[in-house]
Simulated scan of single mutants.
Amino acid sequence: MSSTSAITTHVLDTSRGIAAQGLAISLYYHDTIQDKWNLIKHSVTNKDGRCLDLLQMEQFQAGNYKLTFQTSLYFEEFKEKSFFPFVEVIFVVNDPNSHFHVPLLLSPYSYTTYRGT
């Protein structure tokens, strides 16, 4: 899959066996000097559960990043409760010339994530 975004994600709702369309996601960068997370972008997954517009390669730099997935809002759409109100995935980028794909497998009471390709 071709993308101009340096960081992408793909969310699958494993409890339904479908892509998690319409899930709100935020991307942050950690400012180590001020020890705070700075918002880069808010986005929403598309019909395939993908978010491909988080960060342009020109803006990409080494450091710590955080993806926040608004899981309880997503499950409320199905009139379901979720154990996790949100999921935060923090990861380190050492080589900003690489693409980073961070998938999320999601259900109301569990999640799994990994470094994808």
Rank of each mutant, 00 (worst) to 15 (best):
L55D: 04
R115C: 15
K66Y: 07
S82H: 05
D35P: 04
F100M: 08
H99K: 12
S82E: 05
Q56S: 12
A62R: 14
N94W: 07
T68I: 13
T14W: 00
L52E: 07
A24L: 02
T14Q: 02
N97I: 14
L23C: 03
E88A: 10
D48S: 12
C51W: 03
E58R: 03
L54H: 01
F69D: 05
F83I: 08
P108I: 11
Y109K: 11
Y65W: 06
S43H: 03
R50Q: 14
K79F: 12
I25A: 00
S3W: 01
Q70P: 06
G17A: 02
S3A: 14
L67Y: 06
L73I: 14
G116E: 14
Q61P: 06
Q59T: 11
M1Y: 12
G63R: 08
S98C: 15
V87P: 08
Y28A: 05
I18Y: 00
N46I: 12
G22M: 02
K41Q: 09
E58F: 10
I18C: 02
F100E: 02
S26M: 06
Q59M: 09
A19H: 01
I33C: 00
E77C: 13
E88S: 14
Q34A: 07
K36N: 03
D31Q: 06
S26G: 02
G63F: 13
N94P: 04
V102T: 10
H10N: 09
I33L: 00
F78G: 09
K41S: 11
N46G: 12
D13Q: 01
V44T: 13
F60N: 00
A19S: 10
D48R: 10
F83E: 07
Y65K: 05
L54Q: 01
R50M: 11
L105D: 15
K81C: 12
L73A: 15
R115N: 15
F83N: 05
I90V: 15
N46L: 09
T8N: 07
E76T: 13
Y28K: 01
S15Y: 04
T4S: 11
E77W: 09
F91Y: 13
R50G: 08
E58I: 13
N97E: 11
Y28S: 05
V87A: 08
G49T: 10
T71M: 07
P103G: 12
V89D: 06
Q56W: 04
L23Q: 00
S110M: 14
T8W: 04
L27A: 03
F69G: 04
Y65E: 06
W37C: 02
S15L: 03
M57G: 08
A20W: 01
V102R: 00
S43T: 12
S5P: 09
L67F: 08
D35Q: 08
F86V: 10
F75L: 04
H101V: 15
Y28Q: 02
A19F: 11
R50W: 10
